[in-house]
Design a binder for these strands. Structure first.
Length: 638
RNA sequence: GCGCCUGUAGCUCAAUGGAUAGAGCGUUGGCCUCCGGAGCCAAAGGCUAUGGGUUCGAAUCCCGUCAGGCGCGCCA
């Protein structure tokens, strides 16, 4: 825990004690904010406004009375003032607060396990920019939970049985007339399928006979008939590996790959269905058009969703309900597990299996909280799962079931033209155009990453012509990753990202590379500080040594840096990871301003130099940690 | 039709019900004998779509209007 979190908790206790007997605080929580301007204090609270509503008194009168009682009774506060009609503005004992920043506070242990499901791309073609938003958000979410002390498990759901895989299997076997050996010989299968998927979907739309063939292939896969079954398994696994490699480039890792085929093979749905039927949550449809189907009534929109078809097969929703019940350990069954892949850092990925493997059971799942990172278009189904959890009496699980919903990535009409793709009539006037793998209308994730790498490498070479090729490449990649990841999280979740190459490739201003550059320059200062040079003893440092303007700038930075933990909690509580991007950007802007005004190395006064050096070190510690939550690494040079 | 979301500077976006609505890009003009110019400083640019309401206080909450997007399949 960092000082600001502890301080606010302490202030709440002290305020409650100081006002005891004089004001009835019951039900009014003291909330703190850091005002935009320091003339309104270091911390402010609107406690008097909240109390005024309750006690039916004037806010200003209350605030004045409260301030009088608080004066001198808050350990960390130098002064309490009333302003703006009733705000209570607290001015901290700044030197003490700064000293406290250097003390390490233990994190409270949190025994809640969090499961984050993200990525979950159909394994039938390469990933595109829409998938990148999902994976970047999911990864930052997982990192934030870990930072706050939760045990986190990242799952990636693989729909390896669906019609989408059947589409490309039909394309490979029956349209391109390839046998298994020829399929295995394809060098870049995922990219090959990217084209093929769009092409076969054109054919299916035009030709009903071919569409019927596709359904036949799907059925043969379900019945495990060859060669379709083997082709399907091969394709799903190879494409999955391709997705894992793509995400690995961005530093995104998984713990468990949960396969739909295993959910089916282990009959998870049957385990869930008994309870659903017993409770009357799932029942035969009264609608003659859905005769023989089992349905769940979706209360919010007053419609019924088919869970079991009249041919007794289970729909996607049914399987998803069973899978999510498993995540909460609400089914009396488990997957089997097998190691699938290991990252260079040794971190293993496991995959579910339908047969015993010798690996221990019950090592995955059993989550206390579940985040499903899935775009907003699936809200209806995710809400339905939440509803079903509640109806089954699992109110705690229902409350801890979070659809981490975000808007889609779309293409601007200009972007579509730039890629040499055709616009349909009327689309020119649209604000944006939906990404569609089916229509082959999307930017491939690997292509975008390659473009970013290329641009970044050019910039690095220009600035550091002496850098060894291998080193330059490493630096360029770190910059490309920062640019992409920052771009994917800096928008609000319900903002549609209308993708634009120029904006995504931007390395200046509000961008990932700007953040890196700030730290690179800072590290360059620290490199030049002699190893044994700690400056003057830190304890001697007081803000009083500094001139007015620097004292203000120095304090602003310390105050902002102290908010790291509070900012992460805020981002998580509000489902707005973009607030962390904004926080990081604001900090770097402040630092770059400071850097410009106050030289560290050239400063003659040892006390001032020590203060500056302390601040630089504090900034490095906090902001590197913050950027690591965003998945941004700091290169040595750039 | 039903459900969800959005409308803020020329463009792309920020802003826990809080104090003078902020950034980036673009435009205009400055700053490298200085710890790295992927940087810094400054100017111009706003009736927060629109009409009401609630509140000490509204871009934010509620109702209406206008404009746009997404979802609603015995697909996944």
């Amino acid at each position: 825990m960092f000082a600001m979190k502890t301080l606010q908790e302490q202030l709440r206790r002290e305020i409650a004690a100081a006002l005891e007997g004089a004001y009835d605080l019951g039900g009014v929580e003291t909330e703190f904010a850091v005002p935009a301007e320091r003339k309104f204090g270091d911390l402010s609270t609107n406690l008097a406004f909240a109390l005024a509503k309750k006690l039916k008194e004037k806010p200003f009168t209350l605030a004045s009375g409260i301030a009088a009682r608080l004066q001198g009774r808050l350990q960390a506060v130098a002064e309490v003032r009333v302003a703006g009609g009733g705000f209570l503005n607290l001015y901290l004992k700044r030197d003490e607060f700064i000293a406290a920043q250097r003390r390490k506070m233990p994190k409270p242990p949190r025994d809640e396990k969090v499961i984050v499901e993200h990525t979950s791309i159909n394994p039938n073609k390469s990933a595109h920019i829409g998938h990148l938003r999902n994976s970047c958000l999911g990864d930052v979410l997982a990192r934030c939970c870990r930072f706050l002390g939760y045990e986190v498990e990242v799952q990636n759901y693989i729909d390896d049985t669906g019609i989408q895989v059947a589409d490309v299997v039909w394309g490979l076997l029956h349209y391109q007339k390839k046998d298994l050996a020829a399929i295995r010989a394809l060098p870049e299968l995922a990219a090959h399928l990217w084209e093929l998927y769009a092409e076969v979907n054109r054919l299916f739309a035009e030709n009903e006979e071919l569409a019927a063939q596709r359904r036949e292939v799907h059925k043969r896969i379900e019945d495990k008939l060859e060669p379709e079954y083997s082709a399907c398994r091969y394709v799903a696994e190879q494409v999955l590996l391709d997705h894992i490699r793509t995400m690995e480039k961005l530093g995104i890792q998984y713990d468990l790959l949960a396969r739909e085929s295993d959910v089916i093979a282990l009959d998870f749905f049957t385990a869930a269905a008994a309870g659903l039927t017993a409770r009357g949550v799932m029942a035969p449809s009264a609608d003659p058009e859905k005769a023989g189907c089992l349905v769940i009534h979706y209360d919010r929109e007053k419609i019924e969703k088919i869970i079991v078809r009249s041919n007794h097969t289970i729909t996607y929703v049914g399987k998803d309900i069973a899978y999510n019940f498993w995540k909460f350990d609400l089914l009396s069954r488990d997957f089997h597990y097998a190691p699938f892949h290991a990252y260079p850092d040794g971190h293993p990925i496991f995959m579910t299996a339908s047969q015993p493997t010798g690996e221990p059971l019950r090592r995955f799942g059993r989550g206390r909280r579940v985040y499903n990172v899935i775009d907003v278009r699936q809200s209806y189904l995710q809400n339905l799962i939440g509803q079903v959890l509640a109806q089954m009496g699992h109110s705690r699980e229902s409350a801890n079931f979070v659809h981490f919903s975000y808007e889609m990535v779309a293409l601007t009409p200009a972007c579509v033209r730039e890629m040499g793709l055709k616009l349909e009539p009327g689309e020119e006037a649209k604000p944006y155009i939906e990404v569609s793998g089916r229509k082959g209308r999307a930017v491939k994730a690997d292509d975008l990453i390659a473009m970013l790498n290329e641009k970044s490498l050019g910039e690095v070479r220009q600035r550091h012509p002496d850098l060894a090729a291998e080193e330059a490449l490493k630096v360029a990649q770190a910059i490309a990753v920062a640019a992409l990841r920052y771009f994917m999280v800096k928008f609000n979740l319900n903002t549609v990202i209308a993708f634009d190459f120029q904006e995504a490739l931007n390395f200046e201003g509000d961008s990932g590379p700007y953040l890196q550059y700030t730290l690179v320059r800072l590290n360059s200062i620290l490199r030049k500080v002699a190893a044994g040079d700690a400056g003057a003893p830190a304890a001697a440092g007081s803000l009083a040594l500094l001139a007015d303007q620097e004292r203000q700038h120095h304090w602003e930075l310390v105050l902002s840096l102290s908010l790291l933990e509070i900012q992460v909690e805020f981002a998580l509580a509000n489902h707005e990871l973009s607030s962390l991007a904004a926080y990081a950007y604001g900090l770097c802007q402040k630092f770059n301003h400071y850097y410009h005004l106050y030289p560290v190395l050239a400063e003659k006064d040892p006390g001032i130099r020590a203060l500056r050096l302390d601040l630089v070190r504090l900034f490095k510690e906090r902001v590197e940690r913050l950027l690591s939550l965003l998945g941004i690494e700091i290169p040595e040079r750039m």
